[in-house]
Write a protein that binds this DNA or RNA. Structure first.
Lengths: 226, 226
DNA sequence: CTCGGATCTGTTGTGCACATCATCAGCCAG
DNA sequence: CTGGCTGATGATGTGCACAACAGATCCGAG
């Protein structure tokens, strides 16, 4: 592997899908926003046909929905579904450590150390929470390797995707305090790293669960205020 | 609603997707089997293009995978992933009753009664476990309405889809005894119906969990034997 | 007989032209 | 002024022809 000299057709489609997934999660495309097939096809230098296949896959994954004659839209979550997703994330955080725990190998550990370093050196950029969003995106993907239960981790990542979009949206609308969120996230990564270095996956899961819970609480508080 | 005189384009696509989902779950298409875009398009009287959109969505949902120049295949689950899915189903059964329980309305109750009646009158057909598979398929979809937590129930249904395919496959290969499975399922539906009529969702969840666990055990036993 | 390579066949991927649908602006009747 | 109608516009949906690709087949050299 690693011979990326000749990106085959399927790899191109997969890369495109990953790129669009990231854009949706990182709020480059806001919930409810319309995506133009024509514009996207032009941007990536391809025809509408292969682009439409990728959009269809994202539709199957529940991130997009297309309406004939209207447009293709990023899915939205109402408050109720957001709460349900958060409640599920709390439960799943415990499950991950209990069901099929996978002790992180040295490479994975170094990846977490790198994440912690990035979190420490992250300074709030008033007009763009994107660096933080990107950091959390990478963090979740690293965390998905802490259990060998693929269905569970796939679903956990999916739920993160759904909740993070609304969470990042609150950063953009200043419902959440960027500097505070950065500090809290850095703390979470540090704590989890410490637990991982001690080989205590259960502790790592508990820490993660606590932060998810607190994050949810802050989001609800601001929701009521706004 | 209910005016089905003019099936719009999008409805057609949705119906087609539901039909293919059912065929995959009911093992009309076995795991690993190749699906021909040309043949399917001809069968449904449409061109390859709209069919490909549906296939792409199913690919996004993790039920299909297409390889350039080779074919489109129904995804396969190895034993490890099957075990992980079963383990998850056990946990989720409890979660459904704990998180967002939804007491069944009279209509839902009557639907369960109808399912129980079908289970009672089901006689083993030596060459076709499909009626049982269809019955369980309907049962799971009815059960998905017992919690208002949509993300949870969607995921539970997805996991059922993954495990049921292998389970039904074992019925086809006679690794499982059809008559025995019919009897056990009828018992499960009766017990759950009783719990629902008493308004005890937690009991219903426990019963379901027990049956999932026992079903898993039978599957593992036959796997070791075969 | 064996092995290697060209070729052949069938598959999914791509591009393009057109059909179908939903929306909105503008206009005309009331 | 109001209300509904009609057309223009731009979106996704569809069909078809062809390209790219993988595997099987066939043929010939050794």
């Amino acid at each position: 592997m690693g011979a990326e000299g000749t990106p085959s057709a399927l790899d191109r489609a997969d890369a495109l899908e990953a790129e669009l997934r990231a854009r949706i999660c990182l709020l480059d495309y806001a919930p409810g926003e319309r995506l133009s097939e024509t514009e996207l096809a032009a941007e990536f230098g391809i025809s509408r046909t292969p682009l439409r296949k990728v959009l269809a896959r994202l539709e199957g994954a529940g991130l997009l929905v297309s309406r004939h004659g209207v447009g293709t839209f990023v899915t939205e979550l109402d408050d109720e579904e957001l709460d349900q997703a958060y409640a599920l994330r709390l439960e799943l955080a415990s499950l991950a450590a209990r069901l099929d725990p996978a002790l992180p190998d040295p490479e994975a550990l170094s990846r977490f150390r790198h994440l912690a370093e990035r979190a420490r050196s992250l300074r709030p950029n008033p007009d763009s929470p994107r660096p933080l969003a990107q950091l959390i995106y990478d963090f979740i993907q690293a965390q998905a390797l802490l259990s060998t239960n693929r269905p569970l981790m796939d679903f956990a990542t999916h739920l993160y995707t759904q909740t993070a979009r609304l969470w990042v949206h609150s950063l953009y609308t200043s419902d959440l305090d960027l500097a505070e969120e950065i500090q809290l996230f850095a703390r979470e990564v540090e704590d989890i790293l410490q637990a991982l270095e001690a080989g205590d996956l259960e502790a790592a899961a508990l820490i993660h669960r606590a932060h998810v819970s607190l994050s949810w609480r802050r989001l609800r508080a601001r929701r009521g205020t706004g």
